[in-house]
């Protein structure tokens, strides 16, 4: 994305008060207690085990650690993870918008 288009996007987002995930391809996480996590806008599974699950995002990746993790359902842009979730950590996601 060029600098101008990014600025334009940011401007429209501010003016129209649009949610960021629509414009910037940011992941939207819905966490239900520590039992269920629904993630939109992921880019695939990078690592998958019962204790650690790494999802790649449009930028960087998301690491979820816990016990007894399982993917309840997966689609190309959405994934629902169940199990006991301890940590959710972003890796390699710069501050630049």
């Amino acid at each position: 994305m060029s600098r101008i288009s990014r600025k334009l996007q940011k401007w429209t987002q501010e003016v129209l008060d649009l949610p960021q995930d629509l414009l910037f391809d940011l992941p939207r996480l819905t966490l239900v207690g520590n039992k269920e996590l629904h993630i939109e806008n992921h880019r695939g599974v990078r690592h998958f085990s019962g204790e650690r699950l790494v999802l790649s995002l449009s930028e960087g990746s998301l690491e979820i650690s816990g016990t007894g993790l399982a993917i309840q359902a997966i689609q190309s842009h959405e994934v629902t993870i169940i199990g006991t979730i301890h940590h959710i950590q972003y890796i390699g996601m710069g501050e630049k918008p």
Binding site: G44, V45, H47, F48, L69, A70, I71, Q72, A73, I74
Partner: peptide
């Protein structure tokens, strides 16, 4: 590459559910 397989399933639009890791 189980992860890759799962990704390709998701890409192909094949619905799968209750994916649990059983080993490495």
């Amino acid at each position: 590459h189980v992860e890759a397989f799962i990704n390709s399933l998701a890409k192909a639009g094949i619905p799968v559910w209750d994916v649990t890791p059983t080993g490495a």
